[in-house]
Nucleic acid binder design. Sequence first.
DNA 1: GCTGAGCGA
Length: 450
Amino acid sequence: MAQVQVPFQPPLSGPNGAANAGGNQFVTTSLYVGDLEWNVSDSQLYDLFSQLGQVVSVRVCRDLSSRRSLGYAYVNYSNTQEAARALDVLNFTPLNGKAIRIMYSHRDPSIRKSGTANIFIKNLDKAIDNKALQETFSAFGNILSCKIATDPSGQSKGYGFVQFDSEDAAQNAIDKLNGMLLNDKQVFVGPFLRKQERETAMNKTKFNNVFVKNLSELTTEEDLKKIFGEYGTITSVVVMRDGDGKSKCFGFVNFENADDAAQSVDALNGAKFDEKEWYVGKAQKKYEREIELKGRFEQNMKEAVDKFQGVNLYVKNLDDSISDDKLRELFSEFGTISSCKVMRDPNGISRGSGFVAFSTPEEASRALSEMNGKMIVSKPLYVALAQRKEDRKARLQAQFSQMRPVAIAPSVAPRMPMYPPGGPGLGQQIFYGQGPPAIIPPQVLPIFLA
DNA sequence: GCTGAGCGA
């Protein structure tokens, strides 16, 4: 008889199973562990999770070819109670300086993708950590995932996310906590909205002034008056022109009535006149436009930085005689170089360091291993993956925390309740408990950071 | 001021 390979399937009664969609009376033994720092290893996870029960298997998922960590792992226990306790106790434990985030394994991505029952919280006191957030919101229902946004050093950015397993729980949390005081700060709690959704929500605000661009050079105020006049009474119309009276191909139409303005936008945005497709929208105030442009600029910068992740090499100990071209020549055998630069001081003297970006991470990692330590002119070259500036600090701290002994408290005393039974009253302060942390803080203080 | 990302041997 032919051998049939049976793929691993978690029990159907658990959160993985269709039989238990949304229910929480069953739990499984399979945990998804996400938000891992790049260097977190199987054995590190094994050591940590073994302290709460019998671990059957641990695996950090890795890219098949590069073996790079994908930033998540699976930990399987032999029984459900141990898994449940591990999730409870170990969730948000820092590993290599970064808090891990544990969920029950749920391979069907439909819930994750739907983004339902997902809420956003802002104006959070910086002292409120993942655990405090979890405890505060768990009063309203079962939490699938929850997290405080942090900068690379782990400092709270003052906002966070909670995803529940039901819309009711999410709505209830919003109703009860929005506008409440948490640690003396009034928090905003609302449904999570993607950027796009938020913008369209914002644009529902009333306006009278309409912006129109991509006009033909021949389009006049009279033309606009006639076309927009179909939708209501116009109080002013202008086509912007340069000093010579030449059209800048954009203008403004102000309506007496905001509903008419909105109607004209709906009807005319994207319409074609004289071969030109018009953009028609709410006219932005100068400051609104500045905010949008600034946001877009920062977004572009971020994307540019992301694009270089894993493909950009930092080189140092370069001989002063090495130029951009020479540097490119040295690395060109490993692949396609998308950019290459020797850093120089204001007098044009080489700083002895530079960057070489390849088109793929594979090329970059081969160049790294082949070129690091190679004698160039008179000195051995140092080659490493270039890091983002903000990530450097985090990386140093990760190394630092790796030296700390980590131990699990034998049992965890309950934290103080967040607020009296029945939930907080309007305007009532919510207090955070001072229960002991799940992880005993380091007993040995390592040497200070450079 | 600040609106993620995420599932295998």
